[in-house]
């Protein structure tokens, strides 16, 4: 079955292309870590902020960041959800419930 499906949808193949934020070279942690474990990172952030009230994250390189999905990740860098978050999430068929609460300031109405 996967074989036939692959043949029928040959054009759809290839890894999703992510639109990286202009100007910014590195994320909070290394690319490899973010690829595999951004879920853990964001989940940790959420719990640290909500349960301990701490809002400063010190990355493994020693840089300090404010722990906030909307104010740090989205506002400062990944402002286009459709071209960054969704590309991979759709490819992997995951529907994170981050967006049940968090919003994208630049995408009005969403």
């Amino acid at each position: 079955m996967p074989i036939w499906y692959g043949w029928l949808n040959r054009s759809a193949e290839g890894a999703p292309k992510l639109e990286l934020p202009p100007g910014e070279k590195e994320c909070v942690e290394s690319t490899q870590y973010m690829r595999t474990s951004h879920v853990d990172l964001l989940n940790n952030w959420k719990e640290t902020v909500v349960r301990d009230g701490k809002r400063t994250y010190v990355s493994s390189t020693g840089k300090e960041y404010t722990m906030s999905l909307t104010n740090t990740c989205i506002t400062q860098c990944h402002s286009n959800k459709a071209k960054f978050c969704d590309r991979c999430h759709d490819y992997m068929n995951v529907q994170p419930w981050c967006w049940d609460c968090h919003n994208f300031p630049k995408e009005a109405g969403k």
Binding site: W7, E13, T36, M92
Partner: peptide
């Protein structure tokens, strides 16, 4: 023990379509 799931899917798709790519760091 997190893996790079997106790369795992790339490998799986390439195997299923008989055009295997050389797998990179998946974990």
């Amino acid at each position: 023990f997190k893996i790079d799931a997106e790369k795992a899917k790339e490998l799986a798709l390439s195997i299923a379509s008989f055009r295997p790519v050389i797998p990179t760091a998946i974990g």
